[in-house]
Design a protein around this nucleic acid. Structure first.
Length: 173
DNA sequence: CGTTTTTGACCGGCGC
DNA sequence: GCGCCGGTCAAAAACG
């Protein structure tokens, strides 16, 4: 990963306060974005522009300043091992978001349903079994689908005093 | 020199 | 049983 093509976007998210809560599935509160992503402190200044069920527990979630659009899909929870899975779609020119955790890439695969390859990452913290997969969507690649699986057994390394109030995003062509 | 990336091989589940 | 497909492994290369 070269550092020459790092771009920075300011991305802010709102937790939907209205019901139904996308984090809630079958009456159980599911892990939040912040279990996976480093998010800026929720600024109260942003407003929801769109929040609606799309299909099968999928919500569109746009951020007004156009810097990001999160199409928010909550997927399943495997009760046996507590394997959480959360997937969302961001409108962004960048592919791999720096979420404050460190990841080790362990695979790349061409997927039939997508002209773009899918990238597989594992949390590099030892003993932490969280996985992440990232793929661009469609030919234009304006949307990126990110899926997290599992729960970190540690805090984000970026949850430190010097953590920036923004999300840095990395792009690897 | 330790860690991460790259990349093809390998493997297992599933549908036919 | 076989082949397709998605996910992971692992060795070598690249990186810092």
């Amino acid at each position: 990963m070269s550092s020459s093509d790092i771009t920075t976007t300011t991305t802010t998210f709102l937790t939907p306060s209205s019901t139904p809560n996308p984090m809630e599935l079958n009456g159980t509160l599911q892990p939040d974005f912040e279990d996976f992503l480093l998010l800026p402190d929720h600024p109260q200044t942003h407003t929801e522009t769109h929040l609606s069920p799309v299909n099968g527990g999928c919500w569109d979630w746009e951020v007004p300043n156009n810097s990001a659009c999160v199409d928010y899909m909550l997927q399943t929870t495997n009760e046996d091992v507590g394997k959480f899975k959360i997937a969302f779609r961001t409108k962004s020119g960048v592919e791999v978001m720096d979420d404050g955790y460190t990841w080790r890439k362990y695979g790349k695969k061409k997927i039939k349903s997508n002209p773009n390859p899918r990238h597989y990452f594992r949390c590099s913290r030892q003993g932490c079994n969280v996985k992440k997969r990232v793929e661009k969507e469609g030919e234009d690649g304006h949307f990126v689908i990110t899926t997290y699986e599992g729960k970190h057994n540690h805090e984000s390394p970026a949850t430190l005093p010097a953590a920036l109030p923004q999300i840095n995003t990395l792009h690897q062509p």
